[in-house]
């Protein structure tokens, strides 16, 4: 999906020679995924669609 973007990025980096490229770990998405799994495993949410942070102290 971001393939052209990365190609551009790599090209840019090679040209300028001073930009480091990292493929970032999607921390926010991982947190969201973790919360969804934790909800299910711990059976925390009976009501669907509520915000995960909503009932946290």
């Amino acid at each position: 999906m971001n393939r052209p973007l990365y190609a551009l990025l790599i090209a840019a980096a090679m040209l300028s020679g001073c930009v480091t490229i990292n493929i970032y770990f999607p921390a926010a998405a991982a947190e969201k995924a973790a919360d969804r799994i934790i909800d299910e495993v711990w059976q925390l949410k009976k009501e669907q669609g509520a915000k995960p942070e909503g009932n946290q102290p």
Binding site: Y6, V19, K32
Partner: peptide, 16 residues
Amino acid sequence: AALVASAAWAQGNLEI
């Protein structure tokens, strides 16, 4: 581009 790219990653969902 890097900012946009990382933002795009961050917005996405992980396949679970």
